[in-house]
Each structure stands twice: as structure tokens, then as C-alpha cells.
Design a protein around this nucleic acid. Structure first.
Lengths: 191, 191
DNA sequence: CCATTATGATCCACTGTGTATCGTAAGTGC
DNA sequence: GCACTTACGATACACAGTGGATCATAATGG
């Protein structure tokens, strides 16, 4: 395959990721053609396939980079007990990278991208988990936290300005983090 | 267009809805072709287009029927203050119609179907709302309730048997309904 | 029973995908 | 700086899926 150290390759892939991000902000994923991505990136159509097997591979890479960046910042906060601090960090991190997160999480393809981010986050976290899950409840809780926060952020980014960042952090803490923490400490009987 | 009272039309459309439901349980939506739907339904390819403009129109109708059925049963419960009862009703209703809900909410196209159900539910509820939303928080809360419960049900149906119905109802009440109720009664300052 | 109308079969133009080829241009290593 | 390597753009292609059209056939409702 292509050499990764070649400056042309780096340029081309960056252009493709950028084009994908822009287009995903404007329209649903299945309305975006490979030709449109290539055209937006300013590269030839066939060249696209030298770098990515298909549209979804490119989307996966974009989502993956986003998740890595996000996790690096947010994970340390999740480990400590300060739920409000964690919520604030998440909200302000998104706010600090508004264009790309708005495009991908709340844009025309947000649906698909959130599903991909959820999938990759679950895989990543499963691999790097501190302690093993103690039962189905742990799996459920983790799934719920990630999907609920992603969906809440999507709403927030689509209604920019409707709720200020600190209020949003409080909402995430009170509607997701704290209830889930209570559930874990006092599980339903029968589990 | 086609006459709705003609027995042939009724039969054909039922066959198409059934085929769509079955196929949606098996594979992601964009992997399902109109030809496959027509073949599964036992009707001609071109006949499909006499009844639905495209695949998505059929999916919309299927989702719409599902939502009507669900709402008829669940809405009265949501109006009262008995949150645990409402959660139990939701869970047992889904359990009582397991095949179709499992197929559509948790199946191969669950992603797309949940998005469609969320969309249609928001539209329906906006039209029949008891009182007008009092601000952005009401909009947000409604979006969160519907999407969080749909996602939790999807997890539950995909991990059938992992959590029993009563425990699931308790979880929905404690992680969604009660926190949201608290939020509404005591909103973050600044809203 | 008969006029109506949905249906199945088939054909077609159109769009998007992914592969192959080939001459050109740019980058890399010495 | 120069030669070698490799990515690139352009183009052509087979293939799959879409949605519209036609027409003879069969089911339906009055």
C-alpha cells in the first residue's frame, strides 16, 4: 500500500479527512458520494481508493481521531469522583473544538457518526478497562452513559446558545452521571 | 394512485411491511435492496413503487404504525405521576410484542429505525402537546427521555434475558424518569 | 358478469461504486 | 542536484441498484 511517510500521502489524507468532515456537516452520510469527497478534497476520484477502501473507512478514521483526542482529555476526569468537574470538562472540551464537533456530532450525518463513535468508544474502553465488568449492569451502564451524553451533546450543539455551558454540565451531571452512580451503588434487587 | 379499499392493495402493502420488518431485523438498512423487499414479499419489483416512493417511505410507515400502537398504550401512563408504573408499562408492552420490536429497535437496522422513531415521536408529541413548552429545557428534556429510553430498550432487547423486566423498569425509572422530573422541578439556575 | 384496476414481467436510462491502466508529476534518498 | 521511486490525475470499464415506462394478464367490486 501507500507509504505513510511520503508528504503527498499525508497531504492527500488530510484533505480527504477535511472534506469528509465538511460534507458530513452538510448532508446525511448516504447522500455523500465518493466523487463529491474527492472533488471537495481536490484529488482524483480513483485516488480516493488508494487510501480508503470506501466511505465508511474514511469516516471511521475521522471518528477515531476525534475519540482519541476526546478521551485523552476527558478520561482522567472520569476516573476521579468529581462528577460535576467531569461534566464541565466534557462540555468545555466540546465548546473549545466547536467546528469539528458540531459538524460531526450534530451535522447532517450526526446520526451515523454518533453510532460510529459509540461503537469505537465501547471497543476502546473494553480494551483498556481498569477493572472487569462485574455483570450485565456494568455493560448496560457504560452503554447508557456514552450514548446518552453523545445524544445530549448533539441536541446542545444543534441548539447552540439555548443553554449555557455551565447549565449543560449541571444537566449532564444530574441526568446521567449521578443517577448512574446511584444505580451502581444500590443496584436493583435480582442483579 | 392506488385504491386503499382494494383487497389486493391491502394484501400487497401488508406483505411489503412484513418483508421490510423481517429484512430490517437481519441487515442494516442500506444493505436492503428494493428488489430484496419485493422478492421477500412475493410481489413484482415495479409494483413496489406503486405503493411507496422508496425504501425510506416504507420504513417510515412501518415505524409510524409501531409508534401509534406504542403511544396508544403508553401515553395515558405518562400523564400520571406514577413513574414506576409508566416504566413498567413500557417494558411489559415491548415484551408483549417482542418479535417486531426486537426486529426494528435492536435489529440490523435498529440505528436507522430508532432515529426515525425518535423523529416521528417528537413530531407527534409536538402536535398533541398538553401545554406548550416553557423554554429550551422542556424541548431538551423531551428529546432526552425519548432517545434515552429507546437506546436503553435497544440494549435490553439485544441482551435478552440479561436483565429481567422488573429490574429494567426500575432502571428506566431511576436513570431517566426520576432524574428528569427532578430537573424540571428544580432547574439549573440561569434557565 | 363486466368494466375497472392492480399486478408481474420486462425494458431502459441514470447514478454511484470499485478496479485497472497509463502517462505525468512530485517527493525521497543518495 | 539527480536519478529512482511512488503517488497522482484522467479515463474507461463492469457491475449493482434505482425508479420510470409499457403491456398483457388476472383479480376485484359493483
Amino acid at each position: 500500500m501507500t507509504t505513510v511517510s511520503d508528504a503527498r500521502v499525508v497531504r492527500t489524507r488530510e484533505a480527504l479527512r477535511r472534506a469528509m468532515t465538511e460534507l458530513a456537516a452538510e448532508s446525511p452520510l448516504d447522500a455523500i458520494t465518493v466523487r463529491a469527497i474527492a472533488a471537495r478534497a481536490g484529488i482524483g476520484y480513483a485516488t480516493f481508493f488508494r487510501h480508503y477502501a470506501d466511505k465508511d473507512a474514511l469516516l471511521s478514521e475521522v471518528a477515531d481521531l476525534l475519540i482519541r483526542e476526546f478521551m485523552t482529555e476527558v478520561r482522567p476526569l472520569l476516573m476521579q469522583r468529581d462528577r460535576r468537574g467531569a461534566a464541565r470538562t466534557i462540555v468545555y472540551f466540546v465548546l473549545g473544538h466547536l467546528p469539528i464537533y458540531k459538524a460531526l456530532i450534530a451535522g447532517g450525518s450526526g446520526e451515523t457518526v454518533r453510532a460510529e463513535m459509540l461503537r469505537q468508544t465501547l471497543v476502546t474502553m473494553a480494551a483498556t478497562r481498569q477493572r472487569q465488568p462485574e455483570g450485565p449492569l456494568d455493560d448496560f451502564i457504560f452503554f447508557h452513559i456514552v450514548s446518552a451524553i453523545l445524544n445530549q451533546l448533539a441536541w446542545w450543539l444543534r441548539h447552540e446558545g439555548a443553554i449555557d455551558a455551565d447549565a449543560m454540565a449541571e444537566i449532564i451531571e444530574r441526568t446521567v452521571l449521578t443517577p448512574v452512580s446511584d444505580l451502581r451503588q444500590n443496584p436493583p434487587k435480582g442483579l
